[in-house]
């Protein structure tokens, strides 16, 4: 636990330093990019809580992020805007608005309830089955977003969400989430869950209630993902269904795998490397002019790079860069 706090402190210093540097030296455009990276960091941390500790691949995380984002957005947007954007919303959804804090709490509560219901099925399945069902969950949630245009506006933008968050708030939030994720990993439940991932029968024989600890991690993961979604909606002001689907699942999964899903440090490291690495790939993708040579536009390059990152990591270092080591293990003696 004490070592865990030490590790949280080290990661926090890095996260705060990046935030401060961007605030002082970055343009508005950089600010937006870094904010996006921090949202993804929250997603990857939320993903790590379940996937890293239980070692069951989860592909539905972007859906939970979307649920959090949409619920918060529907609650917080003023009635006047909703009267225009959601004229046909059922259940009087366009006839009220709440302050940001209650909206966020409602979003977290609803996501947690949905996560708990889905979790009841997921935790009982074998690893592969759980992954496939999580994929089905992603597809179901996405089709609900697309189909109920009267509530979610589908592929069109849901606009008029007041900007509540700034870079400072998300840096503070990310430090808090790093703390939660790390403390969960070191807690009794976290240890039991990791033990069950290493040896399911052995853990069961030692009295671990596998289904229960998996469910706890799954719900906590859902809550953290909804927080990421709320942070996304509260800064950008507009959301649509598309960012909560496959491309985002791929992206955040690659981040977690590269850094190493077993540790919180790995989650942070992978997010930072891919967030900054991908920006340069995106720049090449648009076909820039380098040293007087006009490079062609190569759409899809970033997807190839992300896929290659996953395949190469799996082939050469399946446990990711960090493996089983947290950041303090590199500095302190065991």
């Amino acid at each position: 636990m004490t070592r865990g706090l030490y590790g949280v402190a080290l990661i926090s210093i890095v996260l705060i330093a990046i935030g401060v540097a961007t605030t002082y030296f970055g343009s508005r455009y950089h600010l937006r990019l870094v904010y996006g990276a921090y949202v993804n960091l929250l997603v990857v941390l939320g993903l790590q809580v379940f996937m890293g500790n239980a070692r069951i691949t989860n592909l539905s995380h972007s859906a939970f992020m979307g649920i959090g984002a949409y619920v918060a957005a529907i609650c917080v947007t003023p009635e006047t805007v909703k009267a225009i954007s959601l004229p046909q919303a059922p259940w009087g959804l366009n006839a009220f608005s709440l302050d940001p804090i209650s909206s966020a709490l409602i979003a977290i509560a609803i996501t947690a309830i949905i996560a708990a219901l889905i979790g009841l099925i997921i935790v009982r399945l074998t690893a592969i089955g759980a992954t496939i069902v999580s994929l089905a969950v992603l597809v179901i949630v996405h089709s609900v977003f697309l189909f109920r245009t009267d509530i979610f506006k589908g592929n069109q933008a849901f606009f008029g969400i007041p900007q509540v968050f700034s870079l400072t708030s998300i840096v503070i939030l990310s430090v808090a989430v790093v703390f939660i994720a790390r403390m969960f990993r070191e807690s009794k439940w976290g240890v039991q869950l990791r033990a069950s991932a290493d040896d399911e029968l052995g853990a069961q024989a030692s009295g671990v209630n596998i289904h229960q600890v998996r469910l706890i991690a799954w719900i906590l993961s859902g809550i953290l993902l909804s927080i990421a979604g709320i942070a996304y909606a509260f800064y950008l002001g507009t959301i649509s269904a598309r960012p909560f689907y496959f491309n985002h699942v791929f992206l955040t999964l690659a981040m977690l795998i590269l850094g190493g899903m077993r540790t919180v440090t790995g989650a942070v490291l992978g997010t930072l490397i891919i967030s900054f690495g991908l920006e340069s790939v995106r720049w090449i993708e648009t076909g820039p002019v380098v040293l007087g040579i006009d490079l062609p536009e190569v759409l899809g390059l970033s997807g190839v790079v992300l896929g290659a990152v996953i395949v190469l990591t799996m082939a050469f270092r399946p446990e990711g860069i960090m493996g089983d080591r947290e950041v303090e293990d590199l500095l302190l003696k065991p």
Binding site: R55, I56, T57, A127, I128, T131, F250, L253, A254, I257, V298, L299, G300, L301, S302, G303, V304, L306, G307, A308, V309, I310, V311, M314, A315, P318
Partner: peptide
């Protein structure tokens, strides 16, 4: 001979690469 999770993620990555190569 790796565990199923490693294989699954590799296949996921391969699928991603191929899709984007078609696109590209």
């Amino acid at each position: 001979y790796a565990d199923p999770t490693t294989g699954l993620l590799t296949a996921f990555g391969v699928s991603m690469i191929l899709q984007n190569l078609f696109l590209l």
